[in-house]
């Protein structure tokens, strides 16, 4: 887990429930959208971990699922399409005490934001990335996404997609992510456990979640996943074994695995930066240089 926030007062800490993480407004997602299950799991996991809303920063991009920070009670940033991970990296380095949780969709994260996905994973930035993967562009009313299956018919592919989908799990492992899991919005209990582990993991954690779009993706529905999903932990999967993890992640037929595919411990981006050593986060430090610092700068110029 990221550095624990020091107690800010001496009031007794009252345990929070998932309800305390409910935002100011109710989601405007379509009835039956998988994202409800993801929001629910996130609220439960934060409550169960004993986090407080002010200790969390949720960062999202643009898309149906990226509206999540508005529905979640914590500090939030609803940023540009595809840029959530870059903004979140800056925010995490600016205040490394915050628990940074990034939320978004497959188009936002693997399409327009694909470059940041690669580099945030390899840098092992200490944040949790929750991707609601519905294999479609929903907010733009149904076009293919980077995870749409071949042959899928959408408004932009009326004769069927001819492109192979991206595999978020194998991509993340190859890019150097240190916690890589897959969840299903239809199994909130399992998803909650995965999220708790991800938030507690030190480093970049990805949870790619099948979160079916009930309006625009009729190929990959709740029923589609329910009859195929098997849990890795039920089969004694070794989470240190990246090769087997990749093999299992690539199955997308009669069996589709969920659970924790891969985990390892590695230095995080902030953890190896001496400028983050002072207890006070960068963003809260008093500004201005001291005489010694100034002297060193001027001496170099002479």
């Amino acid at each position: 887990m990221a550095t624990t926030m020091p107690a800010t007062d001496d009031k007794p800490v009252i345990p929070l429930t998932a309800r305390d993480f409910k935002g100011l407004v109710d989601p405007d997602w379509c009835a039956g959208c998988g994202d409800f299950g993801v929001l629910n799991a996130l609220q439960r996991s934060c409550a169960e971990l004993g986090l407080r809303p002010h200790e969390i920063l949720t960062v999202s991009g643009i898309g149906c699922s990226s509206n999540l920070p508005g529905y979640f009670n914590s500090y939030g940033m609803h940023t540009l399409h595809g840029r959530s991970l870059a903004v979140a990296t800056g925010a995490k380095l600016g205040n490394h005490r915050l628990h940074v949780i990034v939320t978004g969709g497959d188009g936002d994260g693997y399409g327009i934001g694909g470059n940041h996905f690669t580099h945030t994973a390899r840098r092992n930035v200490d944040l949790t990335y929750v991707v609601m993967n519905n294999q479609i562009y929903g907010l733009t009313t149904g076009q293919i996404s980077p995870t749409s299956t071949m042959g899928m018919k959408t408004k932009s592919t009326p004769f069927g997609s001819v492109e192979a989908p991206l595999n978020p799990i194998t991509s993340a492992i190859m890019n150097g992510a240190t916690f890589v899991a897959r969840g299903f919005s239809g199994d909130v209990r399992h998803l909650t456990e995965l999220m708790k582990q991800a938030i507690q993991h030190s480093g970049f954690s990805l949870i790619d979640i099948f979160s079916p779009c009930v309006t625009f993706n009729h190929d990959n529905s709740n029923a589609f996943f329910k009859e195929r999903i098997k849990k890795l932990e039920d089969e004694g999967h070794d989470t240190n074994d990246w090769k087997t993890a990749c093999e299992k992640a690539m199955l997308f037929g009669d069996t589709i695995y969920t659970g924790l595919f891969f985990q390892k411990q590695a230095p995080t981006l902030g953890g190896s930066e001496p400028v983050l050593e002072p207890d006070e986060p960068l963003g809260l430090q008093t500004l201005g240089l001291d005489k010694e610092q100034t002297k060193r700068i001027i001496e170099r110029m002479m």
Binding site: V87, G90, G94, N95, P281, L284
Partner: peptide, 30 residues
């Protein structure tokens, strides 16, 4: 290191600008 400034080389300028905004939001002059 002398000045306690977090300096990052980023994958592209889109990432640069957005990272700066993220850090600025937490209170850093960025």
């Amino acid at each position: 290191r002398n000045l306690g400034i977090m300096v990052r080389q980023v994958e592209d300028e889109i990432g640069v600008a957005n990272m700066v905004i993220g850090a600025a939001h937490t209170g850093c002059r960025a």
